[in-house]
Computed example of a mutant assay.
Amino acid sequence: MRVPPLYRKPSWQRFLAGAVVGGCLSWIIFLFMFGALQEKQSKKISTQKSIIEDLQNDILIWQKEYKQINQKNAELLIVQNLQVKINNYKKYNIVDSQSIFEAEEAIKKDLNSLLAKDLDTVYKNRELILKTLENKTITINNRRYKLVIKDIFFYSNIVVNLELKLA
């Protein structure tokens, strides 16, 4: 078999030359369109990557703030301080403020177990706390006094206002 001599026929030569030129032009157009689309996609990917990094940084910041707020809320729900105040000591002519201070410190020492406890637990046991304070007798200047609870506030600081009564 022999390849036909097409080089003598100009119609076939034009056809083959047109096919080669058309193939080259279509390849160039394809490369241009593909390159443009790839460039557009790479820009989109890079912008999305930067957006993702920003959002991840925001998430980290939110998580840190969330942990800090939770820690602050946990501290608010724990008894942190006790304040005891005896109000009517002047009624019994007690001028020695050192004795009153020592009595207040003794009461604080009795209530010291409430520190660092859950506020809900302390509030549920308030009747026990009230009975403990009302049954306590204090000796000041060789006189015995009972404590009467005027008011008590439960929060992160427990504030107890007491009055003295002769026993």
Score class of each variant (00 low, 15 high):
95 V>A: 11
129 I>P: 13
158 I>L: 15
134 E>K: 08
156 S>N: 15
158 I>M: 03
158 I>Q: 10
138 I>L: 14
82 L>K: 15
71 Q>I: 10
158 I>G: 13
65 E>V: 06
92 Y>R: 02
143 R>M: 02
104 E>R: 00
67 K>E: 15
74 A>F: 00
67 K>I: 06
67 K>G: 00
102 E>P: 05
112 N>L: 04
141 N>S: 11
125 N>A: 14
65 E>G: 02
144 R>M: 12
142 N>S: 04
107 I>C: 10
96 D>H: 00
135 N>E: 09
89 Y>N: 08
95 V>G: 10
99 S>I: 06
130 L>T: 06
96 D>L: 10
139 T>F: 10
76 L>M: 14
161 N>H: 12
86 I>A: 09
107 I>A: 12
138 I>P: 05
145 Y>D: 00
112 N>P: 03
152 I>K: 06
124 K>P: 04
110 D>V: 12
161 N>E: 12
125 N>S: 00
118 D>T: 00
123 Y>F: 13
89 Y>D: 03
124 K>V: 05
79 V>C: 03
122 V>C: 05
97 S>T: 14
106 A>M: 13
124 K>L: 05
122 V>A: 01
153 F>S: 05
164 L>A: 13
109 K>Q: 02
75 E>C: 02
124 K>R: 14
115 L>A: 02
90 K>A: 08
105 E>L: 01
159 V>S: 11
132 T>D: 15
110 D>H: 12
136 K>E: 15
105 E>Q: 10
76 L>D: 01
159 V>Y: 01
99 S>M: 07
112 N>G: 06
65 E>H: 14
110 D>N: 15
68 Q>N: 15
128 L>P: 02
125 N>K: 12
76 L>V: 05
152 I>C: 10
87 N>V: 11
137 T>N: 03
109 K>V: 06
97 S>D: 13
73 N>H: 11
147 L>W: 10
154 F>T: 04
154 F>W: 04
129 I>D: 14
77 L>T: 09
150 K>S: 08
144 R>I: 12
114 L>P: 00
89 Y>P: 07
141 N>P: 10
134 E>T: 12
90 K>W: 07
155 Y>R: 12
155 Y>V: 02
103 A>P: 00
112 N>R: 06
108 K>M: 05
119 L>T: 01
107 I>N: 09
151 D>W: 02
108 K>F: 13
146 K>T: 06
74 A>S: 09
105 E>K: 15
112 N>S: 06
74 A>Y: 09
116 A>S: 11
111 L>D: 04
79 V>A: 05
83 Q>A: 14
84 V>H: 05
128 L>K: 14
74 A>N: 15
